[in-house]
Design a protein around this nucleic acid. Sequence first.
DNA 1: AAATATCGGACCGTGCGGGTCCTGTTTCAG
DNA 2: CTGAAACAGGACCCGCACGGTCCGATATTT
Lengths: 152, 152
Amino acid sequence: MLRLSKLTDYAVVVLVRLSVGEAVQTSPGVASSIGIPEPTVAKVLKALAGSGLVASQRGARGGYRLMRPLAAIPVSDVIAAIDGPIALTACVDGAATACETSSLCPVAGRWDPVNEAIQSALDGITLADMQKSAIPRAFRLPHPTQSIAAAE
Amino acid sequence: MLRLSKLTDYAVVVLVRLSVGEAVQTSPGVASSIGIPEPTVAKVLKALAGSGLVASQRGARGGYRLMRPLAAIPVSDVIAAIDGPIALTACVDGAATACETSSLCPVAGRWDPVNEAIQSALDGITLADMQKSAIPRAFRLPHPTQSIAAAE
DNA sequence: AAATATCGGACCGTGCGGGTCCTGTTTCAG
DNA sequence: CTGAAACAGGACCCGCACGGTCCGATATTT
C-alpha cells in the first residue's frame, strides 16, 4: 500500500543522473546510463519538463537540463510531477461522483489531515537527501556482478 | 499518486461505525448502516481482525467488536492492516527480484527516509482525529443537497 | 441438534499503470 | 541548403493488481 508508481522512482533516478553533468543530456543517453528503456525515460523526462523541474533543448545537440539543484527539489515535487497531486483517496477531489450515492458515509474519508501530514513530510525531504543515503560507489558500475560481489 | 486503496477508506468508516456501540455488530449490520456491500465489509473486517484491530465473535449472536478506542488507533495501523506494510516502492522489500537486473540503478530508490517520514506522520494521526475533523452533522443526512447549501 | 454468523479460501471482471511506437517539429551540422 | 538528431505529443496495447463476489467449513448459541 501507499505504493507510488514505478515512474516516480524512475524520475528520481533520472534527476539524480541529470545532476552529475552541467551539460544537457539526451534521453537515450540517460536511459542507457541508468538501465531503463528509452521510451520510458523519455516519458518521465517529458513529465518533468512539464512541471518545470527540467528544461528541454530541442533540435540536434539538444537534451534535458536540470533547472534546480537536487537540494532544492523536494520529493513531493517529483511525485506531483509524475503522479499528479498528492491525495490518498478519491474522496477529496472526485467526491461528487463517488460519494453522492452514499449519503450515509460518516467519515466521508476525512483524509485531509493525513494528506497534509504526508505532504509536509514529503516537502522536508529533498533529492539530495535521497542521493546522500544511496551507496555512492554504485554510480558507475561497468561490471555489475563483480562490483556487487566486491562491495559485499 | 499516493492513492491508498478504497478498502482502506472503507476500513476507517467501518472502524468508526464499530465504535458507536459497545456491543458486537454483525458485518451485514455494519454494511447496511454505512452503505457498503456486505462482502466487501466482511473482507475488510476480516483483515482488521487479522491485525488485531477488531475481535471476532463466532457463532450465533456473533459479530465484531472494536478492541481499542479510536484515539488509540493510528491510521498507519489501519493502512498496514489493509494494504500491508507501508512501503512506497517495491525496491525496499522485493528488491531482489526487480533490481537485480539493473545493477546500474544509482539511487536504487533510496526511499527509506521518505518511508520513515510518512510512517511517523501517519502514526501521529488517529482515527479519533479523522472522526473529529469530519463534519458532525453529516452523520445523518436525509437530504444532502440542502445541508450542503446551508453550510455555505 | 439446529440455526446463525464468522472464517477462509478461491474466483473473476475491470480499471489503470507501465511500456511501446509513430509522426511532427525544431534545431544544429555539414 | 539539406539532412540528421532529438524533443514533443499524441495513440495504442498489454499485464497486473485491486475491487467485488461467492461458497464451503467451522464454531457457538439457543
